[in-house]
Write a protein that binds this DNA or RNA. Structure first.
Length: 478
RNA sequence: GUCCCCAUCGUCUAGCCGGCCUAGGACACCACCCUUUCAAGGUGGCGACACGGGUUCGAAUCCCGUUGGGGACGCCA
């Protein structure tokens, strides 16, 4: 792309939570703008009063901010081309509707939803494509006036010119060509006077100076309609790039059932924004670098020409992989806040605690489990751990206890003593100790864990293990 | 039904104008190494050009068809 000023946008409709699929298109538009030093605009497409949810727009913006996807222009960030909520743009649209009506490019349609539905059903049944039959396309001015007089509330329909071809160059698909004869006349203004998507979205892109739009493949066939509207208005359309949709892990459209989650869900689970971003940036786009990249580097490596045309599937395993990278890379104090273990970990040991468990946790919930294991009074046993302790026998823990009395909570002293007195080594040495101290067979390195628990904590756990091992010995003796 | 899009390892993908591909990487998986445990790390392995025709000296790469998936055809966006 060599255009001077690239301007992209994200234009969600506030009908619900921001989901992974939408977020990905937002991300790519941010990346494209940043890559070229351009601007990224946010526009709220809230023309549908039926589905509009007032809190959704705020939530959406909060989600974008959480991810670091700030907009250069949009709500709360006036660039002189607002307003940026379509609900507030009715006055602007009115002028363009007037022009379309005047030139005959649009006409009033009095068909009711019921009639239209019936017509569509009949067409389908007859094996024909369901398209507006043109019932109102040739109403005379008098007829229209009379029906308006009678109180009918028509929609405004765009008159698709017959026998033409609309051609455009898609950023990811290359040259595209559509016959207007395959397009039915479509509604550009609802009966209640609000603007429909096909109209508002296209007009606003042009009015707001958008140069590039990256959107889902599902919009590819909308493009010729939008191009026609803009052409009739003498406005310049942006260049479009339609990327393959992100599907669920089963290949079906993304839904709750097959992996789709909202940004709010992800945040609630403890996903780090950079993990989400790094994952999504690689779905439908490839990076040379397969390590965690910040937004600037993600932008630097972004190339709209490398966007995939084919669909891709959501994969939770890969998302988790990036989460792992993000946790390892995060600064200690941020991780501390993220873990939220201030209540369960003594203040003077919290920093060391964070570093000790960092390699072994993906989510705050796991951090809290480790806090409970290390600092709780009576941490729970895992079955395998209990087994390991019983098999080890009480002598091992007695020896460990002696080491703690002599040298404190030091793993090296403990293992040396136990090895010396019982002759165990390797897995048979470490596993029972790990089990005794943590109640688990796997986890963070023991070396830094012991000092965190302190001599008292270590001793208490060793006594508990010895007791359990003794009970077991007694039982077997019977 | 009409129109449109897509098709490389299990997943994300590299492969853009055909030869440098006995198809590369990452994640996952498996094995080994390392570490007196688990994990991390290191090394290696498993593993794909949907199918059928063309074009060509030569095709994953170009063309056609088949199959499969997706989308649009809404007073949703």
């Amino acid at each position: 792309m060599n255009e001077k000023a690239v301007k992209t946008r994200f234009a969600p409709s506030p009908t619900g939570a921001l989901h992974l699929g939408n977020l990905r298109t937002a991300l790519f538009n941010v990346l494209l703008a940043r890559r070229h030093g351009g601007t990224f605009l946010l526009r709220i497409e809230d023309t549908d009063r039926e589905r509009y949810r007032p809190e959704a727009a705020e939530a959406l913006m909060a989600d974008l901010r959480w991810l670091g996807l700030e907009w250069d222009e949009g709500p709360g960030c006036d660039g002189g081309l607002g307003p940026y909520c379509q609900h507030d743009r009715g006055g602007i649209y009115a002028e363009y509707y007037r022009r379309l009506e005047e030139s005959g490019a649009a006409y009033s349609c009095f068909c009711t939803p019921r009639e239209l539905e019936l017509a569509r059903r009949a067409q389908r049944a007859a094996g024909r494509p369901p398209r507006y039959p043109g019932t109102c396309a040739r109403l005379s001015a008098d007829q229209v006036a009379a029906r308006l007089e009678a109180g009918e509330r028509p929609t405004l329909r765009f008159r698709v010119p017959p026998g033409r071809e609309v051609v455009f160059e898609d950023l990811v698909h290359g040259p595209q060509r559509f016959a207007t004869d395959d397009l039915g006349d479509f509604v550009i203004r609802r009966g209640d006077g609000t603007a429909s998507y096909l109209f508002a979205n296209a007009v606003d892109d042009a009015l707001m100076g958008i140069t590039h739009v990256l959107r889902g493949d599902d919009h590819l066939t909308n493009t010729p309609r939008q191009a026609l509207v803009l052409e009739a208005l003498g406005l310049t359309p942006p260049r479009y790039g339609h990327m393959g949709l992100m599907l669920g892990h089963d290949g079906a459209p993304l839904s709750k059932r097959n992996g789709s989650r909202s940004v709010a869900d992800l945040r609630g689970e403890g996903f780090l924004p950079e993990a989400v971003l790094n994952y999504l940036a690689r779905v439908g786009h490839a990076y040379e670098e397969d390590r965690l990249l910040d937004l600037d580097r993600l932008a630097a490596g972004f190339d709209a020409g490398r966007l995939g045309a084919g669909p891709s599937r959501f994969d939770a395993v890969q998302l988790r992989r990036w989460q792992g990278e993000a946790v390892q890379a995060a600064a200690g104090d941020r991780l501390q806040a993220w873990m939220g273990v201030d209540d369960g970990v003594p203040a003077d040991r919290i920093a060391a605690f964070v570093e000790a468990i960092r390699p072994n946790v993906l989510f705050p919930a796991e951090a809290r489990e480790w806090a409970e294991i290390l600092f709780g009074e009576d941490p729970p046993w895992e079955e395998e751990a209990l087994k390991a302790v019983r098999e080890a026998g009480p002598e091992m823990f007695a020896a460990a206890l002696a080491a703690v009395e002599a040298s404190g909570a030091r793993m090296d002293a403990i293992t040396a003593r136990v090895k010396e007195q019982t002759g165990t080594k390797g897995r048979r040495l470490f596993l029972p100790l790990r089990a005794a101290l943590t109640g688990r067979c796997s986890g963070p390195e023991l070396q830094p864990l012991a000092p965190l628990m302190g001599p008292e904590g270590v001793a208490r756990r060793l006594r508990r293990a010895r007791r359990v091992a003794e009970e077991d010995a007694g039982e077997s003796a019977c």
